[in-house]
Design a protein around this nucleic acid. Structure first.
Lengths: 148, 148
DNA sequence: TGAAATCATATCGCGCACGATTAAATCGTT
DNA sequence: AACGATTTAATCGTGCGCGATATGATTTCA
């Protein structure tokens, strides 16, 4: 009754174990965007748009390629996202006169101004996490190693 | 020259710090699905479909709601996904005669058989990660806590 | 110089995620 | 039995992610 078929017992355990890391990552990422959503709604941003703005707030005129490298995203993902930011008046997109293959993305005044409303988000999120600061840092570093 | 405006210095640091955990999570999750993709292509599964199959391989007849709880996903995500698995001949979807609101998802023989091809994936991925087993476990546990 | 290779971005199609809404079945209370 | 509340799944619209492909600009080098 408590016997299990010998051939399928081991595989099931492996699959179950595997479930853990990749699924934990998947679930945590989903949860994180859900946690951000209400705060970002107030700014009119989605989570990936917020990440793009973070990068631009650090250094404003950037090519699509540079943004893609910073975010680890393809142009097929970024181009429509940037067009939406442009439609929202947060950025401009212009061909680089030096090299017409490139498109330069720049913050508008409105885009720069949005940063002042964004600064409250990190602390709100940190409180919501309810996790010691160094634990957050350690987790972050491990994830960075993972994404090598 | 090296002076920065006092009003914007602190916010920038906070935004940069914040970038780290949430973005590390976001990036690691994207990387993970990219890592799985070639292996899953061989099985004809996407990454979320693979997760759904993992759950079903653990216990086969499950309602849509039970799957959603296990995966932390909504019916609006699961229903189309399950229809694709059904179209692929891996599962069946039938109304529960006991309670017609529920839909029961069951593995087909083909769906059960696919598990044999899936068992090789976890070890391949573990090798690709190049991370000690206990570190993987620790990271997984931290992520689970995060997704509380 | 001019054809070919390379590079930067855009386009298209598919499959998630999820909020909002809808529809149908069941339950609870009277 | 009746009817409002709850439960369960499906539907719809928007916005990612990304593989495959296309387009146009630049560089290479024969």
């Amino acid at each position: 009754m408590t016997q299990k078929p010998a051939s399928s017992d081991q595989p099931v355990e492996i699959l179950r174990l595997d479930n853990q890391l990749c699924f934990a990552l998947y679930g945590a990422a989903n949860r994180m965007t859900r946690l951000y959503r209400p705060m970002l709604d107030a700014l009119g941003l989605t989570y990936p748009q917020y990440l793009a703005m973070l990068v631009l707030w650090e250094a404003s005129p950037r090519t699509v390629g540079a943004l893609g490298e910073a975010l680890d995203l393809d142009s097929s993902t970024l181009t429509p996202l940037l067009k939406r930011l442009e439609a929202g008046g947060l950025v401009t997109r212009d061909r680089d006169p030096e090299d017409e293959r490139r498109v330069i993305v720049s913050l508008t005044d409105q885009g720069r101004a949005l940063r002042d409303q964004a600064v409250s988000i990190p602390e709100k999120l940190f409180c919501a996490l309810d996790m010691p600061l160094d634990a957050v840092g350690a987790l972050r570093d491990r994830l960075k190693v993972l994404a090598k």
